[in-house]
Design a protein around this nucleic acid. Sequence first.
DNA 1: CACAAGGCGTAGA
DNA 2: ATCTACGCCTTGT
Length: 105
Amino acid sequence: MRRTSFSDSVYAITSLIPMGKVTTYAAIAKAMGSPRAARAVGNALGANRNPIVVPCHRVVRSDGGLGGYSGGEGPVTKAKLLGREGVRISAGKINLTKYLFADFP
DNA sequence: CACAAGGCGTAGA
DNA sequence: ATCTACGCCTTGT
């Protein structure tokens, strides 16, 4: 589990997400230069199961789905955290049009 | 050291 | 709306 440049970038970007907003794996992958590495991003977050220092729960799918979560009760905890930050989830999906944040530096 | 398989997705047909 | 194919990282043999 060596913190590679990839996972490090993922953590950096993920931790940049403001409260009340969410991001997609594709957006992160794209922001780091590999728009096709969305899957790798999910792995970096999940495989490393980074502690609370990184709000991996703010990362959702491109279609609004929560995706997966390796912490707490899984997707349940993820949904709970998001709703607690002000992100409303309808039918298990998030309105990316309103909460999507992709203005990464 | 090299190879092979898996995984928290995405885009396209 | 459902299914398949793809590319990219991590981990194990």
